[in-house]
Design a protein around this nucleic acid. Structure first.
Ligand SMILES: [Mn+2]
Ligand SMILES: [Mn+2]
Ligand SMILES: [Zn+2]
Ligand SMILES: [Zn+2]
Lengths: 160, 160
DNA sequence: GTGCAATTGACACAACGTCTCATCTGAAAT
DNA sequence: ATTTCAGATGAGACGTTGTGTCAATTGCAC
């Protein structure tokens, strides 16, 4: 059962808000999760990704890469990493859940149709109108979903 | 009535932007789609929904309600109705595609967690910042996704 | 009416995800 | 170092959502 105590030195993310693999593992151990070989492999693979990735992608990755891991374990470990704030689970342009590195802070993305890169931005234009909308419609706002889609500069220069 | 003429005046949606069943059928016929029994049944069932509905919900509905329709036909007909602007396909809080009545105009919704009601609103706070974000990040904006989640007044008064 | 292309729907298939449960293992206690 | 067992694994069955195929059916133009 989770809840024990161990080393807390590098349990948190660095300045950029991104966890290193050792930090991610420490965060897991902190919460009482056992450091198994599959979990090490999955955390390593997840943090190596430079773009949003689906669970299935990592299933395939983990099968060939850093040791074998079953589908169930991949799903379970990604869930844990998301709960710990090592990863965030967001929705891509098609509504499919994808994971990105970083805590699930209030954040939105510029998502490139071509390469899938999700560039975060933090200005939120929703808060301004949410209050007004809530009042006008007797609606209690809990949260919102905002993603902007298009094409990044790199992809535009590479295409005719 | 023998020899009655086909209403051509009903090809478009009414003032509220919502299609009636005859209007939806007329829109299909206009585009060369045949008016089959399954299509009538599916259009009828779809326009009867008062909340966003999934294709699978309508598959179940159509099986019991206005005559039998195969799964493939339901999916295909919903796709047609969405293409015609009779329905819109949006994403719910979980990212699942759902259909709502009305043309896929630029629109966002207040989506109730409890009852699923999707209340549209038309003020868009994204346009304001999209330009700036595009410029700052060399990103060509194609579109965006914005849904606000929470609880509607009806559901709040019914719960403790 | 006839003819034929459009349409249907049973069925197979695939992707994604959940659940179970027999087996294995990390790590705490000794 | 060995014991011990709750935590963890993963093969496999299963459910849901959605797509593709194709022989049989049917709307509709003529
Ligand atoms: Mn926001
Ligand atoms: Mn908008
Ligand atoms: Zn790109
Ligand atoms: Zn409600």
């Amino acid at each position: 059962m989770p809840g024990s105590t161990t080393d807390r030195q590098n349990a948190g993310p660095g300045k950029a808000g991104a966890y290193s693999v050792p930090q991610a593992l420490a965060a897991m151990a902190d919460r009482g999760f056992r450091l198994t070989a599959p979990r090490r492999a999955i955390a390593t693979a997840a943090l190596r990704q430079e773009r949003p990735f689906t669970a299935e992608q990592l299933v395939a990755d983990a099968a060939t890469g850093d040791g074998e891991s079953g589908r169930s374990t991949v799903y379970r470990t990604l869930e844990i990493l998301a709960a710990l704030g090592v990863l965030s689970r967001i929705l891509d342009a098609s509504g499919r859940p994808v994971y990105v590195a970083g805590a699930p802070v209030h954040r939105h993305h510029l998502v490139c149709d071509a390469c899938g890169t999700a560039l975060p931005f933090n200005v939120c234009p929703v808060a301004d109108i949410a209050d007004a909308l809530a009042r006008e419609n007797d609606f209690e706002v809990r949260g919102h979903l905002l993603e902007i889609f298009g094409t990044c500069g790199d992809c535009r220069t590479e295409s005719p």
